[in-house]
Amino acid sequence: MDRETRSQLAHAGHPVAAPVGDPAVERLIGRALALPAGAAGSPRLLDLGCGRAEWLLRALAAHPTATAHGVDVSAPALAAARAAAEARGLTGRLSLHQVPAAEHADPDPYDVVLSVGATHAFGGGLAATLDAAGRHLAPGGHLVLGHGYWERPPGPEVVELLGDHADLPGTLDLVTAAGWTPVYGHVSSREELDDYEWSWTGSLAAWALDHPQHPDHAEALAAATAHRTEWLTTYRGVWGFVTLVLRR
């Protein structure tokens, strides 16, 4: 089973591909769309690394005049996004592009740019993500950035598994040093973090149990078990997640 298909199955019960619960997603979208006076009455949104485009779909549903563009390299994720947009009657306001997030080109700026849990798409981590997103943002616009941080000092096995991060104050220092000002933020709770991991591993395991004759059955069940073990024994209580609404 390829990684993209596994991810789609694992996110079946948690279409927001980050440890952020529905109430927080709604608040963050509301803050992002509360643009300064003089901003466009029909805001344009861009999600760099959109996955199933769940953030954009919820934003479009909340703001009937908005339009959105989602960028991702995953064909299965974009197919799921198209199906969800059609089911919600939003296809006319959502454009999807299968291209690396760092290569998206559009001469027109966006009022809201999102990149939640997708800093890996830019090669250089947080700094590269801020730089890439900033090139697409209209003056006075909002960037919604979701990124991991260390809740407590990690061991070497955690860094090897998840990459290097700063703690929460250090993460904010990196953001402000790059010229951004937080105007809102959400630190994912233990409940949100655990719900995301239980949903990821549980959805994948449930698919495997529901398809015992599928050739990928055993592989999917093993991947769910391995992920759950890594989470519970390696990074639970060490890794956290923050989502920021930023302006320049």
Rank of each mutant, 00 (worst) to 15 (best):
D2W: 02
R3C: 00
E4F: 15
R6E: 13
S7P: 00
S7C: 09
Q8Y: 00
A10R: 05
A10T: 08
H11W: 13
A12H: 12
A12M: 01
G13D: 13
H14R: 15
P15C: 11
P15Q: 11
P15G: 11
P15D: 02
V16W: 12
A17R: 14
A18E: 00
P19D: 04
P19K: 02
V20N: 03
D22W: 03
D22T: 15
P23H: 04
A24H: 05
V25K: 02
E26K: 13
E26C: 06
E26W: 00
R27I: 07
L28E: 03
I29L: 14
L35I: 06
L35A: 05
P36S: 01
A37Y: 00
G38R: 03
A39D: 02
A39Y: 04
P43C: 06
R44C: 08
L45C: 12
L45D: 05
D47S: 13
L48P: 07
L48H: 09
G49H: 09
C50A: 12
C50R: 03
C50Q: 03
G51Y: 01
G51N: 02
G51C: 02
G51P: 10
R52I: 01
R52P: 15
E54N: 08
W55R: 07
L56I: 13
L56F: 05
L57A: 06
L57K: 07
L57E: 02
R58I: 06
R58Q: 14
A61S: 14
H63D: 13
P64R: 06
T65K: 13
T65G: 09
A66K: 05
A66V: 12
G70L: 11
G70Q: 08
V71Q: 07
V71M: 03
V73A: 13
V73T: 15
V73I: 15
A77N: 02
L78T: 04
A81P: 09
A83E: 14
A84T: 11
A84M: 04
A84G: 12
A85T: 04
A85H: 06
E86A: 15
E86Y: 00
R88M: 02
R88L: 14
R88E: 10
G89N: 08
L90D: 03
L90S: 05
L90N: 04
G92C: 07
R93V: 12
R93C: 12
L94M: 11
L94W: 09
S95M: 08
L96T: 10
H97F: 10
H97I: 07
Q98P: 12
P100A: 15
A101T: 06
A101Q: 02
A101K: 05
A102Q: 14
A102L: 12
E103D: 15
H104P: 01
D106T: 14
P107W: 08
D108Q: 15
D111E: 15
V112W: 04
V113N: 10
V113H: 07
L114S: 05
L114G: 11
S115A: 14
S115T: 14
S115I: 08
S115V: 10
G117P: 02
A118F: 00
A118T: 15
T119R: 01
H120Y: 13
A121Y: 00
A121D: 07
G123N: 02
G124A: 13
G124L: 09
G124H: 08
A127K: 05
A128H: 05
D131G: 10
D131C: 06
A132C: 14
A132K: 03
A133M: 10
A133W: 01
A133I: 08
H136N: 05
H136R: 13
A138Q: 07
A138D: 04
P139H: 03
P139G: 10
P139Q: 04
G140E: 02
